[in-house]
Amino acid sequence: MNIFRLLGDLSHLLAIIILLLKIWNSRSCAGISGRSQFLFAIVFTARYLDLFFTFISLYNTVMKIVFLATSYGTLYLMYIKFKATYDSNHDTFRIEFLILPAIALALLINEEFTVIEILWTFSIYLESVAILPQLFMVSKTGEAESITSHYLFALGSYRALYILNWIYRWFLTEKLNAIAIVAGIVQTILYCDFFYLYLTKVLKGKKLQLPA
């Protein structure tokens, strides 16, 4: 464990907590893409199956349980408890165009052809594009609440910090995973447009407006 990876995981956890608090306190999921949250739940489910038969550390196990519980909790809030506030008209990104290529790519490019490895690889590929429905929804609605932009900033920062973690581990000649690194770079690049707007607008108190 290094400071970059710890900050990355905490940023990820912060993002999930910000989202849960936003939905719970405002009793509304307006502006939030249920499709992205659905993809995140798939990502965690496919990746954390090893939860039940490999123990790496207490931290690792606890965080996996927290991420699984909070992602399904978010789905519950969005699709059941506060379903009436879910903006399905603007949450229209075709997620099959994300899931199917991720499955195909995981079957073609992976470290070893086993079920657990294919599922892990699929979750890595899917995670790199899972935010697209949310970014698409923000561009369609033309703006986002500031709390949603804080959520996106924390979520985007998590994988950016992981890139620093991989650089750090490379200098320590620790073992690395090329698939996770390439997908992590793609994932972070998708946020660049948003990062620019967040740093130049939201932090100056303006509303976040993505060019439609």
Partner: peptide
């Protein structure tokens, strides 16, 4: 090698 796989990350 450096790209041997270790799944200790979340």
């Amino acid at each position: 090698g450096v790209f041997d796989v270790v799944k200790d990350e979340l």
